[in-house]
Design a protein around this nucleic acid. Structure first.
Lengths: 127, 127
DNA sequence: GCTTGACTTAGAGTGGACTCCAGAATGTAA
DNA sequence: TTACATTCTGGAGTCCACTCTAAGTCAAGC
């Protein structure tokens, strides 16, 4: 796949794909004789994983470190696994923080609702 | 309350508190005769709300707009409410995105677990 | 052969949210 | 009263994650 196809498939800009590559998130992308990138299926899977992690806010640098470990082979499996566990813990924290905001918003939205209804009610009565 | 106390209470840096003020998130902070800020209980409540929303990623600019509406009085209640509803929807989206990442991580962590266990098992047998 | 469009690079620019700094004034404790 | 901490202001600097620009290469179609 060429870069524009990958870009469309995953809805990630071409610039961003090249940026990720420079940042070490997509090592070893093959290029044809005239220097044009050719993404393999494995590259695409990686793009998908990156997209998923980035959308949850995992920093590019940490992702880069994780992928570097992947490239080093089996002996880094344990370390990679513990990175993922760590990341998972952070995301759970983040999710819960967001949930608390949602709860606060629900509370406030309800107050507005009651206030506005009370007002309307009041208008009704004075009619 | 003085700025350093507010800073400690909510774990927000003094610089950030002043930055929020400049950005319109904390309008009308009173200052004493020598120009030193004195935060009222209402200011503090606002700081807490800001902290909650910011920790969930609500942009400073939107927060600033919301607070400006608050300052305009009752006739903006409807608009404020719909801003909160909108924000709530975005946070639910965000929370779900993070959940999908967590699910993906769970899946991967499990694969590592199985792989590592299989390896260990193998070592056991060859002993 | 020439244009068009997709690709390449290195490097500069942007936006958001802080974070730090210099220099001045004010407050507090020994 | 001397020293040290805290506050103030305006503005500069930083970090992250892109995003854009300029200048160039290459393949396909007319």
């Amino acid at each position: 796949m060429k870069i524009s196809e990958v870009s469309k498939k995953y809805d990630i800009s071409i610039d961003t794909l090249r940026y990720y590559e420079k940042a070490g998130l997509l090592p070893n992308i093959k290029k044809n004789s005239s220097g044009i990138r050719e993404y393999t299926d494995m590259d695409c899977e990686r793009v998908e994983f990156i997209k998923c992690m980035r959308s949850a806010g995992m920093p590019v640098e940490r992702l880069s470190k994780y992928i570097a470990l992947c490239e080093q082979g089996e002996e880094t499996a344990e370390e990679r696994r513990s990175m993922l566990i760590q990341q998972r813990a952070e995301l759970i924290e983040k999710r819960d923080t967001i949930q608390r905001s949602i709860d606060k918003l629900d509370y406030k939205i309800n107050i507005y609702y009651n206030t506005l209804r009370a007002k309307e009610n009041c208008l009704h009565k004075t009619k």
